Simulated scan of single mutants.
Amino acid sequence: MSPFLPLATVIGCGVVYHVAQKASGAVSPWPVLTIAYGAAFAVALFMLGLGWWGRGDAVRWPAARDCVASLALGLAAFGIEAGFFFVYRSGWPLSSAQVITNLSVTAVLAVTGIMVFGEHLTGARAVGLALAAGGATLIARG
């Protein structure tokens, strides 16, 4: 598999995600999230039946530690979904809400990567974070 296919999938789905969130006229996020997670569940079951991306690999149930991580992932995804629902309903523009939230997450992950996983923050990455923060500031003010 090309290393660009997963990246293209994330980018394409991210665009659809934010446009759908912003375009939804629902008053409450709960029915919207029920339908969304029902669709995600159906797709996940389908993919599980195929094996990973249809390659036919053996599918094994995750270990206990991975199940805890899976639960955390599900709760975090739910929080992101509900959070963006309210962010967009409170008037944040599509063009800046996602940029500001993702930059904030990126900054926290940079620190987490260093402190928890022993990753290194190179000078180039530090400059990149600073430039991204400056860009997000300009977008938020515009």
Rank of each mutant, 00 (worst) to 15 (best):
L50S: 06
W52N: 14
F78V: 11
A82I: 01
A23E: 07
L121I: 06
R55G: 11
V116N: 10
I139L: 03
C13F: 14
G118C: 02
A23F: 00
C67D: 05
Y37V: 09
R89Q: 01
G74S: 04
P3F: 00
R60M: 12
T9H: 07
A136K: 01
R141K: 09
V16S: 13
S96I: 04
P6R: 02
A20N: 10
V27R: 10
A26M: 06
A77Q: 14
V59F: 03
V108A: 15
C67M: 11
G25M: 08
W53E: 15
P3A: 04
D66P: 04
L103G: 12
T122Q: 15
S95N: 12
R60C: 13
L45I: 12
P6H: 04
T106Y: 00
G118V: 03
I114Q: 12
L50A: 01
A42G: 02
S2K: 05
E81A: 12
S2V: 06
A58Q: 15
A126P: 13
L50D: 06
L75G: 13
V27F: 07
I139C: 00
G135I: 14
C67E: 14
I80R: 10
A97P: 10
L7K: 03
A76Y: 08
W30A: 13
A26R: 03
V116D: 05
E119D: 08
L50Y: 02
G128L: 04
A132L: 03
L129F: 02
A20E: 12
G134A: 01
V19A: 08
G25I: 01
L138M: 12
F117R: 14
A82P: 06
L103R: 06
A124Y: 12
A58E: 15
A58Y: 05
A136G: 08
G38W: 01
H120W: 05
A69D: 10
I35F: 11
A97I: 01
A40M: 14
L71D: 01
M47C: 14
G142N: 08
A136D: 00
Y88D: 05
P62S: 00
T122S: 15
P3H: 04
P31F: 00
G79P: 03
R89A: 00
F117Y: 10
M47N: 11
H18C: 00
K22N: 14
A107L: 06
L131K: 04
A64V: 10
F117N: 15
G79K: 01
T112C: 04
P62F: 01
S96F: 13
S70Y: 01
C67V: 15
